[in-house]
Each structure stands twice: as structure tokens, then as C-alpha cells.
């Protein structure tokens, strides 16, 4: 920010702030890995089968994607309104596209 006029290179507040944020990033990375492992384990161990498993897998993927969007890509930060609108709009149309092709191609 331009209002930052302290003579030291990076004031300690800013440094601490970005360190804290990095901590959150690492936490989200770990949770993404956990979700991935759960997904692979569910399939590998065949604890569940059938369409329930498929739904669960997709839910896990969506949660992971949201971590990626909101934290890694900073969509949760301020000033990301238009950016969010474009990606969520894309997801809506993507959903419709997949639904259309998935459901009414063979009938």
C-alpha cells in the first residue's frame, strides 16, 4: 500500500501478516492432500461402491477445488468480486454443459 511510509524494508506487521497467510496456505495444502488420500483410499480399498461413492468423490473434488480457488488463488480476499463472478459463472455453465452431455446424449 502506498500509505506505508515506514523507512524499514518491510514493517514487521506486514511480514507477520504474510507469514500468517502462508500458514493458512500450508494448512489448505495439507487438507487438499488429505482429501486426495481419502478419495484414492475409498477407491483403492473398495470400502464403498456404486453411485454413492461417485457422488462422494465429486463432492471431495469440489471441496478441494474450492480450497484451491479461495486460498491458493485468493478468491476469498477483498476486491475479487468480478473475478468470483466470472469463475462462478463459468462453473454454472460448466455444470449445465456436463449435465446436458451426460444425461441427454444417450437416452
Amino acid at each position: 500500500m502506498t500509505e506505508n511510509t515506514t523507512p524499514n524494508k518491510l514493517d514487521s506487521y506486514r511480514k507477520q501478516e504474510s507469514k500468517d497467510e502462508m500458514k493458512i496456505q500450508v494448512i489448505s495444502f495439507v487438507s487438499m492432500i488429505v482429501f486426495t488420500v481419502i478419495a484414492f483410499a475409498l477407491v483403492g480399498t473398495q470400502l464403498m461402491t456404486g453411485s454413492y461413492l461417485s457422488i462422494l468423490l465429486v463432492v471431495l473434488a469440489i471441496v478441494q477445488a474450492m480450497f484451491q480457488f479461495l486460498y491458493f488463488m485468493h478468491l476469498k480476499d477483498k476486491g475479487h468480486g468480478p473475478a468470483s463472478a466470472s469463475i462462478y459463472g463459468g462453473m454454472l455453465i460448466a455444470f449445465l454443459t456436463i449435465l446436458g452431455l451426460g444425461v441427454i446424449t444417450w437416452w
Binding site: 466470472s86 469463475i87 459463472g89 463459468g90 455453465i93 460448466a94 455444470f95 454443459t97 456436463i98
Partner: peptide, 15 residues
Amino acid sequence: WIFLGSETVLFASLF
């Protein structure tokens, strides 16, 4: 970001 919104539909078509 707008481009990525567009890419979402691109990949959705392939999916």
C-alpha cells in the same frame, strides 16, 4: 480470471 471462467466451460465441454 475472466479467461479462467471461459476455460471452465472449455474443459466442461471435454468432460
